[in-house]
Amino acid sequence: MTVSRTIYAPSREGLRDAYGAMQKIRCFEERLHAEFAAGRVPSSVHLYAGQEASAAGICAHLGAQDYLHNTHRAHGPAIARGADLIAITKEIYLRAGGLCQGKGGSPHLHDARLRLIGANGGVGSGAALACGSALAIRHRQENGVAVALLGDGACNQGVVSESFNLASVWKLPVVFAIENNGYAEATATSYAIAGDNLAARGPAFGMPSTRVDGADYFAVHEAAGVAIERARSGGGPSLVEIMAPRFYGHYEGDAQKYRAPGEVAELRRTRDCLTRLRQRMIDEYQFSTAEIDAMDAEIGVDIDRAFAEAAAAPPSDPALLMRDIYADRSGL
């Protein structure tokens, strides 16, 4: 895949937005980590810290007509897609006013207006659902794309391979974006993924495919841009494998004994997409430290407010238990 970097080089404004999203995700997840440790989070959460460049690099190319199918590691992509931070936090806290009225919770962050589709419990099904979104887009000639975020673990499910094939057979405007963070729960990809190369599966299904360093925002941004543009212009599906480290466990409370000693510290030191982006913004795009610090401070205020509002939000209304099971209640 040879595409000139200049085509997909982010603008300064684009970088500002991307950095803002990534910083917001990082702060949010670290705050959530602390809140969870303090026993204030009522449910299980899977943190996205370390993988921010993936969500931000993809969402930079998405418009209102596009669908983003999320994974259960959902907070980052939801924030990058622009979902309301307070509603996200309330949903994670399972309170009234949450994105899904407290019925979904952390993995199922969903905002229909943003075409942000919540994850599914069985993890791989988003690939199939994204084929459906793409079918609808094409049927309505909306010039959109559907991006399916998938973990490396989900890619071992049959439905994902079926979806790769179906998307290719139907030439759907889909991008399968695999976030390979090295572990499916407590099992390393080097054990669970035969060939240890998910990008290699794309050509087997007749799809262009690429693997990029998820610590490099620019690389993700370019690869996602190429794949999304191909889908949008009728070129069919593509696969992008984003090697994105996770800085926390599979879920909060995971002691991560499966990791090598010092592994996370090493990842944070060498493969932190956020510090790398910040440095390049300063070195190559004339951002000042003060300017970035000011952004960080503003984001910190937003995060504080979101958590404060979520903690203060009323619990879910018990009447919701039997609501929205069906859209048409005739005969029920």
Partner: peptide, 8 residues
């Protein structure tokens, strides 16, 4: 529909 709070 239910999981996503009746949005769809």
């Amino acid at each position: 529909r239910y999981t996503f709070g009746g949005q769809d």
